[in-house]
Write a protein that binds this DNA or RNA. Structure first.
Lengths: 219, 219
DNA sequence: CGTGAATTTGACTGACATCAACTCAGGTGG
DNA sequence: CCACCTGAGTTGATGTCAGTCAAATTCACG
């Protein structure tokens, strides 16, 4: 169920300019008008919501190959802010043109729907995480999730770099920076991983998965 | 940006049989194959995820006019279970037929995308709620959310019936049944609402909104 | 090196969970 | 009609996990 060459060519034609986004810069902000979806070519992003009292909640971390901006389709306004976690590059996909194309190309349409649907299920699993997992379990699930996403992209699932700060991890997982730090220390002590700054090595993925699944408690 | 009559007629043609779902019955279950989306005609549903260790997390409450099953598009398998909270009625929308129609009908396509996108933003706001709101704020936000949805459907925003148990509310909000009960009592004492069983009357919506927004703390 | 930011670690606190007892409404059968 | 039972909900006492506050340490970078 991939896109064929013809599909890809027609898709390429509507894809707008590549755009570089410097570390820390916004790709779009809450309230911005919606023109484009963005396909991440290079780098990492975070998306965040802001509550009425001004508190920020990170709703996801995105990496190369993922699509940004789908939440804006409903009202033609962006509902979250996307920030580059490192110097990154995206392709603009003008949504108007994409829509026209979708009408002609059932496979592309199907593909697009899958991506939106995937975002829905991703968010549901975060709700599960935030709603009834303990801190240890949340953090293990987070590490495993990154691991499998890197693996799917052909990178090592055991060794990767955290592109986000401890604070951002904490915010995403509904925990404080201190808790994240303690969890890292605990996992290190347990022989589950090796950390040095943002460089991470998972030493015992099966056990980490078991902790994430809740079938093992961790000391 | 509604659908015109012609659109509606063609849509009606593909809409399958109406299906009654008794209180407590499943409309679909995690792992079921995906055939149809479901438009709720009558009644209320909850959707829930189950974590690997068997804990249930309610990811949403849906009412008449809302669409169920969009999370299944990505893998052709349902990722959550939908349960009727009361005797309800849905329309089956065979997704295959819908897709064909979407190719021909740009307005319908646009409408469908908006609905999917809306689900994404809804979930993001739940993440915000679960990630960094206090119990009181979560519950106020929950009540206000229901209120505005009933209002949008032409029902009273001040007086409505809770279709779900205290336990279900707690599960959804990442709290226990006891906490929900205490919050109800607190709000009652504060003169914010009147409750009797599942019958609810919001006495001071502005203040409740302020609490939900985090701009007011509540005693 | 020196300065400020990010992270780690420790002590204490608090919000919500847990445990337990009690109330109440609704249904069932004598 | 009423005694009994059951399940939902309420209320109180206590415990605990993660938050808060504070200080120490390490890191990034001029």
């Amino acid at each position: 169920m991939g896109l064929d060459n013809n599909d890809m060519n027609r898709l390429d034609q509507i894809i707008g300019r590549r755009r570089k986004v410097a570390r820390g810069a916004n790709l779009f902000r809450i309230g911005d008008g919606f023109q484009n979806l963005y396909a991440i070519r290079l780098g990492h992003f975070k998306t965040c919501q802001v509550s009425q009292d001004g508190v920020e909640q990170i709703t996801g971390f995105q990496m190369a190959g993922e699509l940004l901006g789908m939440d804006a389709i409903s009202t033609d306004l962006h509902h979250c802010t996307a920030v580059a976690l490192e110097d990154s590059e995206v392709c603009e996909i003008p949504f108007g043109s994409l829509q026209q194309l979708l009408g002609d190309m059932p496979t592309l349409l199907r593909h697009f729907h899958r991506m939106m649907s995937q975002e829905i299920t991703r968010e549901q699993s975060v709700m599960l995480l935030l709603g009834n997992m303990q801190a240890t379990q949340r953090f293990a699930a987070f590490l495993i999730n990154l691991s499998s996403r890197y693996e799917a992209r052909g990178y090592s699932p055991h060794t990767y770099q955290l592109r986000m700060s401890r604070e951002e991890i904490g915010n995403y997982l509904g925990l404080t920076i201190e808790s994240i730090s303690r969890l890292l220390s605990k996992f290190k002590k347990e022989g589950l991983l090796r950390v040095s700054n943002r460089e991470l090595e998972l030493l015992d993925p099966p056990r980490l998965k078991a902790i994430a699944a809740g079938t093992q408690t961790c000391a």
